[in-house]
Design a protein around this nucleic acid. Structure first.
Lengths: 207, 207, 207, 207
DNA sequence: CACTAACCGAGACGGTACGTCGAGTCTTAAC
DNA sequence: GTTAAGACTCGACGTACCGTCTCGGTTAGTG
């Protein structure tokens, strides 16, 4: 018979002193603070170490380089609270979604970091992948589930590709906020206008 | 009659040796080369100077810092050749436009630089302004003139705000290329699909 | 009786990696080499670093500026071997001393550095102090002990101030070598001539 | 018949605009000012040009480099007023001379410059030569003429080499002021003490 | 309890680039 | 041909971080 410690397949604890969880927390928090205070470009590991009250080596023992640290710091903070949908109609749900999605990256000041990720994506596939799974796919899951829900209920055209619909609904607000008017609050009714246009199209009706 | 000194409006040449136009060219070209070779983050003024065959001071005499140099280097190269529109219908024009606009920033490898500008915009209003006038407004002028043209001809709904229409038409492709699939060639028919969806809307027709 | 913790006077080692003694040596040696090869004026920290195979920061961590480095480099090399005196008479001792003292600063090529120290002394009290303790006082100790020795034995006038005697004996050779004929070997009998003149005076004897 | 301009043998005036004598003066004066204000090491031609209200090229047209300029600036200012000798006895003349000679280089703040010249002499023969003719020989002429004068009158030992006597009389004060006590006023009677010791010697008289 | 192994802080290490300064030269237009 | 002005190349300055290393010392599990 086996005793209570039959952990044959348990993961072996490595010998030696285990890494300090306090250090982990302090480093990530210091990183986030400095990131929001001074931006990605001027983030210095030495400052992170100083603020976290930690040796530089302690950081490099956990992350291979600056990028990895930033990525992890970000990962811990994306979109905590869900967006609540009215559920009364597709139009209402989409307006709430468009409003909420964009609000997130802007109000948390994370917009700059996302843009940095996009910029680095071209050269650093790790960042590209992280950005996709962290930001893009989280958004897409949200919006696509809503769209599919209303497609089953007949409010979304059955012949439309969900991917196309996602783009049509979310991209305009994103571009407006991030590219056209960075840092400016959009008009309150913009989300509604965009969703309405996406729903009914912009072509003049055939006579 | 004018006297011999009628150069009231002549622009005074400043005293001293004029700045070398050769140096200007060499610096900007070297910057652009290094930018495309190694990215924004790792661009070093010393390397620019070395490649341009120019002293570092010669660069700093012209631009106060790295950002200003990059901005100027970019400015000289945006959107040289026009996009030719078929003109046969609004749909055909928009498809050509959507195809063309995005192709530009991607095939020239300028995508990363634009993302960098967006990232820096939050902290550096100069960059924000430059990005707007250089990238955003150029695109918008193009698309809005086309839209207005077809609105007069009755193909675009007369009650639609042009700005909303611009977003609906261009944003989806931008988001697809830049955020969803950075560096990947989109399916050939994507532009058409997006434009068609924008034109006719995604809502199921009322019975 | 002492308790178990009687290490009250133990010197605490500072935390962190200790400075490399190899680097110390390499830097000082490189400094000395460049100093003798190219002179004080054209000594460049960057070249010192390059020759010592050391990073520039490693130098600046130890010395606040070029002057301090030069001073330390000098300090390590002053007057290693003693001058041996015959001891047969005051005259013989002084001739040997005068010969030897000046030979030192000249044959080691240190003459230029001493002149540089004198020149900087006016503006930099640190250098003034270092020059005094390093060069002047070392010489003076030597000569004054010899003079005192022979004063006790009645060969030096008992009413003469030792300081005056020091000057009278050593200054002429110094001025000859450094000011009148820089870099030229003096006649072999100059030391003897100068000492003899200093001993017996230059005034014609009273009839 | 010849006109009023029959300057057949006159030295040909070169064509073009003659060099401005004002510029010469302004440059030399500015150099001297900056030299006394900030020392040799930190003298910058650019600052000289700025203060003199002159272009840098105007300086380089006249002097090949910084050293040459400094040398010329110095040359214009050495020993303006003569030292007046009492003439009552050799002892009185020598005391006045010793007093006066050293006072010069010190009270005019020229001491540092002389030391700089000595330091550079080793590597730059031009400076060595200039120092010799400008400083050393001027002093030596003065002192040697006095010594010769009194030798003829029997106050200086007839068998003594003038050169030796010069050294014995002037070197001690020089070393005292420049090497032992830079920037400090010597005791009022030091000159007398030194001269007296040089005259009568420091050896105890034979019984 | 001693041993071992990995952790911790501190900070030095070789590098690379920063943005500034000055040297000495060159190129304008004006005189 | 000289002048003021200011550009040019070159080389060094002193600083800031990078990512790595070496210290003395700590903190777990294992023998």
């Amino acid at each position: 018979m086996m005793g209570p410690c039959a952990d044959a397949d348990a993961e072996r604890r490595p010998p030696g002193r285990p890494r300090s969880a306090d250090a982990d927390r302090a480093i990530l928090q210091a990183t986030l603070e400095l990131l929001t205070e001074s931006g990605v470009a001027s983030l210095a590991i030495e400052q992170v170490a100083a603020r976290a009250g930690v040796a530089k080596a302690t950081i490099y023992r956990r992350w291979p380089n600056k990028e990895a640290l930033i990525l992890d710091a970000l990962a811990g903070t994306v979109d905590e609270k869900p967006i609540d949908l009215p559920g009364t109609s597709m139009r209402d749900d989409l307006v709430a979604l468009v409003q909420g999605i964009v609000g997130r990256s802007v109000h948390t000041g994370r917009g700059q970091l996302y843009a940095w990720m996009v910029a680095e994506s071209e050269r650093n596939p790790h960042i590209a992948h992280k950005y996709k799974s962290l930001v893009v796919e989280r958004r897409r899951e949200l919006i696509s589930s809503v769209l599919r829900h209303w497609q089953e209920r007949g409010e979304l055209r059955p012949d439309i590709d969900i991917e196309i619909a996602e783009l049509l609904v979310t991209a305009p607000m994103l571009v407006y906020r991030v590219h056209w008017n960075p840092g400016v609050e959009p008009p309150a009714d913009l989300a509604a206008q965009l969703v309405d246009a996406a729903l009914s199209g912009i072509a003049a009706p055939q006579p």
